[in-house]
Design a binder for these strands. Structure first.
Length: 669
DNA sequence: GATCCTCGAGTTCT
DNA sequence: CTCGAGGATC
C-alpha cells in the first residue's frame, strides 16, 4: 500500500472527480463517464478510506452508500422552525391574500415568486463550514427526526458546498422525493418479489428516508430539490427569494427550474394554470403552486402567524375526485359521546389509496348533503388525505331510500341520545363502552400519559372483558390478567406493565389534559397547570376565578368546574392518586411568571390582606417588592389613607392599583 | 357586533 | 386536514 501522504492526495483527487461527475450527472444532466467507470472510482475511494480511516471525512462521497443500521431515529431540533403554509384551491382567495399584503405593505403591486409545490418529504439540511452535518425531517415543525446518514445517500444533495465564500453555517430547506419513473420501477421490482409496493411516490420516499439502515435508502433513488435558505451565517443573506434560489444553485443544489418571478398576483395565478396543464407531463408529483413575496424585507415586515408565514400561500390543485356508492351509513361514538355518521362506501381508488369510509360529520351536514343509503356520491381526499363526501349525484330513475335520521338511542350502549345544536350526544357517559374506550385511548395517548403498547385493539378487548372500568384501572393490571388477553405473551405483557408504571411519573399539564375534560386540550391544560400549580387548586377553582385567566372564558370554565363537581370524576382522580400517579407541578422559569421583573410598592392600610401575604403573592408570581417609589416602580398598590408614596407615584406616572385591582391581578393572571 | 385567530375534536389508511 | 366555536380585539 502507498504511504499516507500519497494516499491523502489520491483520496482528494478521487473525491474531486466523483463530485464533478455527480454534478454532471444530477445537476447538469450531462453524464460524461459510464456508470461502471463511476462505480470504479467510488470503489477505489472506499478502499483507500478503509486503509486510512482518518481521511474518511463526513463529506466523502462514500458516505452515500449508506451506514449500518441504527436502533431508532433520534430527534433533531431545527435551527429555525419549519412552518407550514396557508393553503387554498381558490384563485379568489389568492387575490384576497394579495390584497391583505398590498394593504399591509402599502404597495400597488407586489413581486412574487411562484414555484411548484413538490409532493415529497420536507427536509432541513444543515451545513457547517460548508459540510453537511445534519439532515432532519419536518416533524412537528420544531423537532424532526435525524435522517443524516440516509440523506447522505441522496446523490443530488451536495455533501460539501461548492461556492466561495462558504458560509460558516447554513440551513437549507427542500423536498426529497422519488421521481415517477424511479417510483414505478421500484414498485415493479417489489411486486416481482411478491411485496405489496407503495401506494404513491410520497409514501415510498417517506419509507426510504425513515429507514434505520441507510444502505436501504441508498438503494432507493431519491432526489432532492432545495428551495429555501432558512438561516445563513458568515455569508450575505440574499435580499430576495429569486436570488436565494440562484445562490442555492451556486452552492451545488439542484433547483427545479419551473419557478418564475411574477409581477403581481395575476401572473402567479396564471402560472398555477400553466402548471396544472403541465402537471401530468412532469417527471415528479406536485400538488400545487407556492406563491411567496419575493422581497425578504417585505416578508419581515408582514411576519408570521403561529404556524405559517403571512407572506406565502400554497395555491393547490383541485384534489382528485371519484364517484362511488354509499352502501350503508354507520354511527360512531366519540370520547365526548358525540355521535358521528360515517358513510360506508363501495371501495374506490382515490389518487392511489383505496377509500371505503368517509365522515359525514353530523346531522346538519348529512341533511345539507342529503346523503342516503344507496345514493351515488362524489368524494375527494381533503388535502389529499382524509376522505370526504363532496356531494350527492342524482341518478336518473333511481328509487332512493328514506332520509337517514340520527338514532334516538346510542348504537353502542342504548342510552338516550340528546341533540345539542348540530350534534347529537350519547348520555351514557363512561357507562357507555364506546366512550370509555375512547377516553382510555385519549388517556394513554402521546400528549397525555403516553403509554406505549396500549393500542386500540388492546383497549377494546380489555374493556370488553371488563378488565377496565375506568382509567384508574389501568394501574391495577397485572401480568396474569394481561396474559388472559389474546395475543399477549409474556414479553409484551411485561413491556406494557413497565410502560404503565413509568407513566405514573407525569407532568401536571399532561395529567390535566389526560382527564379528557371537554374543551380542555393540551393548550388549556397547560394554562391551568401553570396558573394553579397543583391539581387540588385546579379542582377547587371557582368559575369566576377561572374566567379571569387569559384565554379562558365562560364555556371552558364551566367545563372545568362541571368536570370536578361530578362525583364519579372526582373518584377517578382520587383513585389515580391512590394508585401512585404523581403529577409534577410545572417548573416555571422566572421569565414565564406573569409578574416577572415587575416592581411593586405598597402604601396605606391594605384591607383584606396582610403586608407579608401581599408580598409573598407578588414574589410567588415573580415580582419584586420594594419600599420606595421610583421611576423603576411598575405598580403602586394604594390602600386606604395612602401617604406620600401615592403622590409620588402619580407624579412619576406609575400605575396605581386599588386593593381590589391588586387582588384580581395576583389572582387572575 | 364584527372580525380575526387559535384551539379542540373528530377524521382515513398504511 | 377541516369544521365549528371560544376568546381576544377593535
Amino acid at each position: 500500500m502507498m504511504d499516507r501522504k500519497s494516499a491523502e492526495k489520491r483520496i482528494g483527487e478521487l473525491k474531486e472527480q466523483i463530485e464533478r461527475h455527480d454534478r454532471l450527472y444530477y445537476i447538469d444532466n450531462n453524464p460524461q463517464i459510464s456508470d461502471a467507470a463511476y462505480d470504479e472510482l467510488l470503489r477505489e475511494l472506499e478502499e483507500f478510506e478503509e486503509a486510512f480511516p482518518d481521511f474518511a471525512a463526513d463529506d466523502s462521497p462514500t458516505k452515500r452508500v449508506g451506514a449500518p443500521p441504527r436502533s431508532s431515529l433520534p430527534p433533531a431540533r431545527h435551527l429555525m422552525p419549519m412552518l407550514s403554509l396557508d393553503s387554498t384551491t381558490s384563485a379568489d382567495e389568492a387575490r384576497a391574500f394579495d390584497e391583505r399584503l398590498r394593504k399591509a405593505l402599502e404597495k400597488d403591486r407586489i413581486a412574487y415568486t411562484a414555484e411548484p409545490k413538490f409532493d415529497g418529504i420536507s427536509l432541513e439540511l444543515v451545513y457547517e463550514n460548508g459540510v453537511l452535518t445534519r439532515a432532519a425531517t419536518r416533524g412537528d415543525g420544531t423537532t424532526g427526526e435525524d435522517v443524516t446518514p440516509n440523506v447522505r445517500t441522496i446523490r443530488s444533495v451536495p455533501l460539501r458546498l461548492s461556492d466561495d465564500p462558504v458560509p460558516s453555517l447554513v440551513s437549507v430547506r427542500g423536498e426529497a422525493f422519488l421521481p415517477l419513473d424511479r417510483f414505478r420501477e421500484l414498485n415493479r421490482r417489489m411486486t416481482e418479489r411478491g411485496e405489496p409496493g407503495f401506494a404513491n411516490p410520497r409514501n415510498a420516499a417517506a419509507g426510504a428516508l425513515r429507514q434505520l439502515d441507510s444502505r436501504i435508502t441508498a438503494s432507493r433513488p431519491l432526489t432532492f430539490f432545495a428551495y429555501e435558505i432558512m438561516k445563513i451565517e458568515g455569508a450575505p443573506d440574499p435580499p430576495t427569494h429569486s436570488e436565494e434560489l440562484d445562490l442555492l444553485s451556486d452552492f451545488g443544489f439542484v433547483i427545479d427550474n419551473h419557478w418564475k418571478t411574477c409581477d403581481g398576483i395575476e401572473e402567479a395565478i396564471d402560472f398555477h394554470a400553466v402548471l396544472a396543464e403541465a402537471r401530468e407531463a412532469l417527471p415528479f408529483e406536485i400538488d400545487g403552486v407556492v406563491i411567496e413575496v419575493d422581497s425578504k424585507r417585505d416578508r419581515d415586515a408582514v411576519g408570521a402567524r403561529s404556524r405559517s408565514p403571512r407572506w406565502a400561500l400554497a395555491l393547490k390543485f383541485e384534489p382528485r375526485r371519484e364517484i362511488t356508492d354509499v352502501e350503508d351509513i354507520a354511527v360512531g361514538v366519540g370520547r365526548t359521546g358525540k355521535l358521528t355518521p360515517v358513510a360506508l362506501l363501495k371501495p374506490v381508488d382515490v389518487g392511489g389509496v383505496t377509500v371505503s369510509r368517509a365522515t359525514l360529520h353530523n346531522a346538519r351536514d348529512l341533511e345539507r348533503k342529503d346523503v342516503r343509503i344507496g345514493d351515488r356520491v362524489r368524494i375527494k381526499r381533503a388535502g389529499d388525505v382524509i376522505p370526504a363526501v363532496i356531494e350527492r349525484i342524482e341518478v336518473a330513475g333511481q328509487k332512493r331510500s328514506g332520509p337517514f335520521s340520527m338514532p334516538s338511542a346510542c348504537p353502542v350502549c342504548g342510552s338516550p341520545v340528546e341533540a345539542e345544536g348540530a350534534n347529537h350526544y350519547c348520555t351514557g357517559g363512561l357507562s357507555c363502552p364506546a366512550q370509555l374506550k375512547r377516553r382510555i385511548m385519549h388517556f394513554a395517548s402521546k400528549g397525555a400519559f403516553d403509554i406505549e403498547g396500549l393500542g386500540e385493539k388492546t383497549v377494546e378487548s380489555m374493556v370488553d372483558l371488563e378488565m377496565l372500568g375506568s382509567v384508574a384501572d389501568l394501574f391495577r393490571l397485572n401480568r396474569d390478567k394481561l396474559l388472559e388477553l389474546e395475543g399477549f405473551a409474556e414479553k409484551s405483557a411485561d413491556n406494557l406493565l413497565e410502560a404503565i408504571e413509568r407513566s405514573k411519573d407525569i407532568a401536571l399539564p399532561r395529567f390535566v389534559y389526560a382527564l379528557g375534560i371537554r374543551n380542555v386540550g393540551e393548550h388549556v391544560a397547560g394554562l391551568l397547570a401553570l396558573h394553579y400549580g397543583s391539581l387540588e387548586a385546579i379542582a377547587a377553582a371557582p368559575a369566576e376565578e377561572l374566567i379571569s385567566i387569559r384565554e379562558i372564558g365562560p364555556e371552558v370554565a364551566a367545563s372545568v368546574t362541571g368536570f370536578f363537581s361530578n362525583e364519579r370524576n372526582r373518584k377517578t382522580v382520587d383513585d389515580l392518586l391512590v394508585q401512585g400517579v404523581a403529577p409534577k407541578p410545572p417548573e416555571r422559569t422566572a421569565a414565564d411568571l406573569p409578574l416577572a421583573g415587575k416592581a411593586f410598592v405598597f402604601t396605606g392600610a391594605l384591607e383584606g390582606i396582610t403586608r407579608s401575604e401581599a408580598k409573598s403573592r407578588v414574589q410567588a408570581l415573580g415580582g419584586r417588592v420594594s419600599s420606595s417609589v421610583s421611576a423603576k416602580t411598575d405598580y403602586v398598590v394604594a390602600g386606604s389613607d395612602p401617604g406620600s408614596k401615592h403622590e409620588k407615584a402619580l407624579r412619576l406616572g406609575v400605575i396605581v392599583l386599588s386593593i381590589d385591582e391588586f387582588l384580581s391581578l395576583v389572582e387572575g393572571d
